[in-house]
Design a protein around this nucleic acid. Structure first.
Length: 419
RNA sequence: GGAGGGGUGCCCGAGUGGUUAAAGGGGGCGGACUGUAAAUCCGUUGGCUUAGCCUACGUUGGUUCGAAUCCAACCCCCUCCA
């Protein structure tokens, strides 16, 4: 492993955040001077929350702040209108300005959990590239910056090359994405003195272009750093779960479900994830990583707790852990299982069918799916297997706690609550 | 503008007049095994008031008893040519 003098690069290298780095020596020297260095990561506003796939970048900004530097969060309000072609075979669907603004508002909430914003030298700042991209003058832009980009070279970057090799369409709009991202870097350097852009390894081409543009236009010495593409040990992409993406906003995915996601980490990933997604000291992580077999479950709980505490707060993490303990280790009813309000009359009157109840509880997407799962023996009503699709929910099904517990398989549970 | 190829379910991809809600794979969900893991095996995977009905193979019309499959027009994509 490379050895660095700066706290930031040292921590990042030790924890497995670094895939590639432009000019490692010079960057290390810059980061070690004791003066806060502004560095940025861009996030496109394609959804109203970020998910676990962006967590590596978020954690890196956190470390940046922790080690005495200044994180700049760039919201891609402008670039989202163009759409990053990287790693895709087709263009993103067009989002309206209102959609984009709504997404930015949602994403802001995530960052407030992880970073300290403000006006101080190491306080985080959030900026929106729509501020400078929206008003660009096409001709002036082409003459000032377009001339620095070689189409020949652009065609050689993976984001473009792979698309063309697969004979998939790429519009001129998308083709411009890397130019705009490069320009962002330049603009951030001018406005905020940003020296470093970070991002996932798929962003390497976009980042390097920005570094070069800065040198050509302003003779600025800029740096780039990329993180490894994060996959599970079994090769799958990170950030997926039963209900889709692992969202970081509590209104998209409950803290309990978030905790569960980390609790179910594959054995082979535990050590790596502890380094990336928690701030436990390295000695502690090394100790946890030596655990074998079922003992590793303890390490997974620690991972789940630490990751959830960062995202949703200590209390939410504790609640989630407690709910999980009761649900799985005692087979009881945990406090934090998803609760669905149902009219008392409906619950007691025997008019609510089991299938409809499962859909209502969010455990099945449709009546048909609910039916199949019931017939397949996957469904439990108050922990009793329910195999009859025509079964109705009745007053007698309400437990002493005043709820009806529905389970889909072993891990997905929900409570119907009379209102 | 010309010539050729193509647009199928969440994704990839077979299918060229009926037995096709559409092979196969991936992904998802569930079951078994386990440690709330992985791997493996099994089931399932459009909707509904489910022995039936409805919706679906780029769009719109047409031929036919019957079309994802044939015809016409249109839209979109790829390749080569101009």
């Amino acid at each position: 492993m490379d050895t660095y003098r700066s706290d930031f690069l040292q921590a990042m290298a030790a924890r497995g955040f670094i895939q590639d780095l432009t000019h490692p020596g010079e960057l290390d020297a810059l980061m070690a001077t004791g003066t806060p260095v502004p560095a940025y990561i861009g996030f496109d506003a394609t959804a109203s929350s970020l998910h676990a796939g962006s967590l590596v970048q978020i954690m890196m900004l956190r470390w940046l702040q922790k080690t005495g530097h200044k994180p700049i969060v760039l919201m891609g309000g402008g670039t989202t209108k163009v759409g990053d072609p990287t790693g895709r075979d087709s263009a993103r669907k067009m989002l309206s300005d209102a959609d984009i603004q709504g997404n930015i508002d949602g994403i802001k909430q995530v960052f407030q959990k992880y970073l300290t914003f403000g006006d101080g030298p190491t306080d985080a700042v959030m900026v929106n590239n729509a501020d400078w991209l929206d008003g660009l003058n096409y001709l002036a832009f082409l003459r000032d910056y377009g001339r620095h980009f070689s189409v020949n070279r652009m065609l050689s970057f993976d984001s473009v090359k792979l698309r063309l090799e697969r004979e998939q369409p790429m519009s001129f709009l998308e083709f411009n994405y890397m130019i705009l991202q490069s320009y962002d870097f330049l603009e951030l350097n001018r406005r905020h003195g940003v020296r470093l852009q970070m991002g996932g390894s798929d962003q390497w081409g976009n980042i390097v272009n920005g570094v070069e543009l800065g040198r050509r236009v302003d003779e600025a010495e800029l740096f780039g750093l990329t993180t490894p593409l994060l996959t599970k040990a079994s090769g799958e992409k990170m950030g997926k779960t039963a209900d889709g993406a692992v969202w970081l906003n509590a209104d998209h995915l409950s803290p309990y479900a978030y905790w569960q996601f980390w609790r179910n980490t594959e054995d082979a990933d535990v050590g790596r994830f502890l380094k990336l997604f928690t701030e436990l000291p390295m000695e502690e992580i090394d100790r946890l990583s030596t655990l074998q077999g079922a003992e590793l479950n303890e390490a997974k709980k620690i991972l789940a707790h630490a990751a959830t505490a960062l995202c949703h707060g200590e209390d939410a993490a504790r609640d989630a852990a407690e709910t999980a303990r009761r649900t799985f280790e005692e087979g009881g009813i945990g406090e934090n299982l998803p609760r669905v309000q149902v009219a008392r009359a409906e619950l007691e009157g025997g008019t609510l069918g089991l299938l409809a109840a499962l859909v209502k509880a969010g455990l099945a997407a449709s009546n048909g799916e609910a039916r199949r799962q019931v017939q397949g023996g996957a469904v439990r009503l108050n922990d009793e297997k329910a195999t009859e699709p025509t079964r109705m929910i009745e007053a007698g099904d309400i437990t002493a706690d005043g709820v009806v517990k529905l389970s889909m398989g072993k891990k997905r549970h929900a409570l119907l609550v009379a209102e």
